[in-house]
Design a protein around this nucleic acid. Structure first.
Lengths: 130, 130
DNA sequence: GTTGAGCTTCCAGTAACTGGAAGCCCTATA
DNA sequence: TATAGGGCTTCCAGTTACTGGAAGCTCAAC
């Protein structure tokens, strides 16, 4: 299968698929013309990575998850550790963003948003702590 | 004031301060020796940017907010628009991350995390939709 | 005078792509 | 058979907001 079909079936941009080859996540075969020839296994790996990326796993996590996926002697503990650590990072990010949201929502709410210059948002940003 | 003192007072790394000069957020004076000489105004701008960055505003947003801050003829509506748009992006990101967290938490919870290979996390990632 | 800290610039690297240019290859149609 | 188009290739550069590191000048203290 050529890259365009793979792109359509995996919903990954062709550029991204080439990039994933570049960094060694997949190694599709090549035809005589130099075109990439994707196997079903390549397809499955790409779909796997696509889903992992969708869950926010880093490329390095994806690489490790792929390796574990292909390793029948794996321990589920290793997979869980990666997912658990990622989950914790997401939770930390969520807390950070929620705090930003709260502050911003309050500020936006307090700002008249008219043609006058007075603005609690700027006042807050300028609040001097130095 | 030299860069190290500014760095301590604004809590911004010296590298970051130089970078902010590079991209034109501030333009500190220079001494005869070539050292940057920061004014109180530079300090305030840096603190302002630091706080805006802390709230997740992009550098370009910071640039625009700084300009509005220094413009006495501004309309608070312009400030509010920037903050509102940023708030919406944060809320979108929050929704995305919350979804990731929910899925991940469920998967991590279902995974035994022992020395056996069976793993619902991998199974989920491998769920073929292609 | 020398040492060590502080300052300078410049280059490269980060994460994960994405856009674009230059140039083959393949297929269909006139 | 010539050509037009779309698909494929590689390679280079740009994105965001810094950060690390090297080479080298400056300053203050002893």
């Amino acid at each position: 299968m050529n890259i365009k079909d793979v792109s359509e079936r995996t919903k990954l941009p062709a550029k991204t698929i080439r990039y994933y080859e570049d960094i060694g996540l997949i190694t599709p075969a090549r035809g005589e013309n130099g075109y990439r020839k994707f196997s079903e296994n390549d397809l499955h790996k790409l779909a796997f990575v696509g889903r992992a990326r969708h869950l926010g796993f880093s490329i390095e996590d994806c690489r490790n998850l792929l390796a574990l996926w292909g390793d029948n002697g794996r321990s589920s503990a290793d997979v869980r550790a990666i997912a658990q650590s990622h989950l914790e990072q997401i939770e930390a990010k969520l807390r950070e963003l929620a705090e930003m949201r709260d502050t911003l929502a309050r500020l936006v709410h307090c700002c008249a948003g008219d043609n006058r210059p007075d603005c609690p948002i700027l006042e807050d940003l300028a609040k001097t702590h130095i």
